[in-house]
C-alpha cells in the first residue's frame, strides 16, 4: 500500500501542523529548504520507519521525508530534540554494531531498538535517551503512519482519529 502526499498532509494535520495543500503537494525546493533537519537525520528517520512500518507499505522515504521536514520546520527547539535523539541512536548503534543506524541491515535496526528496550520504554519528550527515542522516533513515526488515511486503511479504518477525513466513511459498510 502506497503512502502518498495526501497521507503526509493528513499526518501533519494530526500532528498540529496546518499545511496549505499547495505547500506540501508541490515538489518545490522550498519544501526541504525550510527544514532545520539535516539530510542525515532525515535518512536515519527513514531507516527507522523502514523497520517500524509494516512491509506492505511503500514509498516510505518520500512520506517520512515530507512529514519530518515540515513537522519540524517552524519548531527549532523540537528539531534540535529530534536531531539530538537521532544522534543518540547513531551513537548507540556505533557502540554495539559498529555502524550508524541507517547503515545497518533492517534486522539489525530492529535488534538495536529491542536491545535498548525502546519497545517497553515510556514515550517522554524530556526523558532519558531511550524514552526520547520512543517519543521522537518510534512514536512520532507510528503516529504519522497510523493517523494517515493509508495507515488507517491498513487496519480497515480509512478515517483514523486525528485525520479530517470527512463524514462519508462512518456511514459506509465494510464491503463498500
Amino acid at each position: 500500500m502506497r503512502l502518498t502526499r495526501r497521507d503526509a498532509v493528513a499526518a501533519l494535520a494530526a500532528a498540529g501542523v496546518a499545511v496549505g495543500g499547495a505547500t506540501l503537494l508541490s515538489d518545490s525546493p522550498e519544501e526541504s529548504d525550510e527544514s532545520p533537519l539535516d539530510d542525515g537525520t532525515v535518512a536515519t528517520l527513514v531507516a527507522a520507519a523502514e523497520v517500524l512500518y509494516p512491509s506492505e507499505v511503500e514509498d516510505i522515504d518520500s512520506f517520512v521525508g515530507r512529514y519530518v521536514r515540515r513537522r519540524n520546520a517552524d519548531e527549532p527547539a523540537r528539531a534540535d530534540a529530534v536531531t539530538d535523539t537521532v544522534a543518540y541512536l547513531d551513537e548507540y548503534t556505533d557502540a554495539w554494531f559498529d555502524a550508524a543506524f541507517a547503515d545497518l541491515e533492517s534486522a539489525e535496526r530492529d535488534d538495536a531498538f529491542r536491545r535498548m528496550s525502546v519497545d517497553t520504554a515510556d514515550p517522554v519528550p524530556d526523558g532519558d535517551d531511550v524514552e526520547r527515542v520512543r517519543y521522537y522516533v518510534v512514536n512520532e513515526l507510528l503516529f504519522a503512519l497510523y493517523s494517515s488515511p493509508t495507515g488507517g486503511e491498513l487496519v480497515g479504518l480509512e478515517n483514523p482519529r486525528g485525520n479530517p477525513g470527512g463524514l462519508a466513511s462512518y456511514q459506509r459498510g465494510p464491503q463498500s
Binding site: 517500524l52 519497545d119 518510534v138 503516529f143 503512519l145 497510523y146 483514523p160 486525528g162
Partner: peptide, 13 residues
C-alpha cells in the same frame, strides 16, 4: 483506536 494502540504497543512492523 488503532493509532493509540500503536503508540502504546510493544512491537512494530
Amino acid at each position: 483506536s488503532p493509532v493509540e494502540m500503536a503508540l502504546d504497543g510493544e512491537t512494530w512492523g
